[in-house]
Design a protein around this nucleic acid. Structure first.
Lengths: 187, 187
DNA sequence: TTAGATTTTTGACTTTCATCAATGCATTTC
DNA sequence: GAAATGCATTGATGAAAGTCAAAAATCTAA
């Protein structure tokens, strides 16, 4: 992994020793669009860092593809529920475009906690970010109309609107494709 | 704090030294019903363990009291968003009945991480539980009808139905009092 | 015990968005 | 370039739950 990459940049300070040991455990993946990082039904075994590109997490319910989240460059992502509980994941994660990913296995991560408590701290902080994102999303969804949810997405994460398909955006915003189409017609 | 209490029982194993040091930092609170553990607008400064009793977290929006969560005996609770971000809390947490609480301040908790990395692990695991609970609740809310949400609450946490008021239960289940009343009439 | 207050239930009506179906538009493929 | 395929739009209708208002039930306290 390039030295320049900002792996822990926004998280916490980590000693050089821990940093190097951690990086040694990373696996680089040059992924094409549609690469499946995690699969529904399998225990999520890696924590990913998106160095370049983007990803989306989704699951199938009643034959519908429902997008749970989008992740952009510089973010960590995994099927967190499964990664924590060690039970099969209900979600699949795939790249939205050609991407460069770094990943660490669950076991290597746990081992790094034993070796470097500061790594556990870094992970704890990633978890905190995950938690905050989920909580904010929940409140966001609760109070806004379909229209306002779309407008807010345009404001906050316009990149997603470029990278994802209409169906993916609609399910992410918890509305049908038709509703999204009607909203777009009236802006 | 009584030796017998199961503070870390369901979380992780912690050395006796860490355990004792941690317990020394705890403050015991014998709270009456309605005691405000955290207040909206203030930075959440404590992590609570409910030894006896119960609590609910809520916020006010457009003059409505909206219950976010109920916490029962044996659970940890705080205004997590604020506790993590150190920004003012949007939620208030209060006891639902006479309760015995133990709490540790944010600073003491952070200090304990420096002293005992295993405490950071324990906290990390509390965070994981919090995350899982939130994610499960989100999916639960998304796919069930008002009626099914009520039925599931009756099944899973019947104690809440005894301890909380109708308005609190309705807002927790994301429906109006009228809807809840109609559902109850038809069971 | 009764008047008043509060909570709960019921009824009529409205809103929001889903569903289903048809049509339009664009792109690929032969 | 016509057919086929896939995605997006539009329209008609319906369902779930919200809103507002009034009635009924329950609680409280002098």
């Amino acid at each position: 992994m390039k030295q320049s990459s900002g792996l822990f940049e926004n998280i916490t300070t980590v000693s050089e020793a821990a940093r190097l040991a951690f990086i040694a455990k990373l696996e680089e993946i040059k992924a094409e669009k549609g690469f499946k990082m995690e699969r529904e039904g399998q225990v999520s075994n890696h924590l990913y860092y998106i160095s370049e590109g983007s990803a989306r997490s989704f699951y199938i319910r009643e034959n519908r593809d429902i997008t749970v989240s989008f992740s952009l460059e510089g973010e960590f992502v995994t099927a967190m529920h499964s990664f924590i509980t060690r039970k099969p994941s209900y979600e699949t994660i795939e790249t939205l475009e050609k991407s460069i990913l770094y990943r660490i296995s669950h076991k290597d991560l746990q081992d790094s906690f034993e070796e470097f408590p500061e790594m556990e701290r870094a992970y704890r902080m990633i978890l905190e970010k995950y938690y905050i994102a989920l909580e904010e999303r929940q409140i966001f969804t609760k109070f806004k109309s379909a229209r306002d949810r779309y407008l807010e997405l345009m404001d906050n994460k316009p990149k997603i609107i470029q990278k994802a398909s209409v169906g993916q955006i609609a399910s992410f915003l918890d509305m049908t494709i038709e509703t999204l189409s009607r909203i777009r017609a009236k802006i």
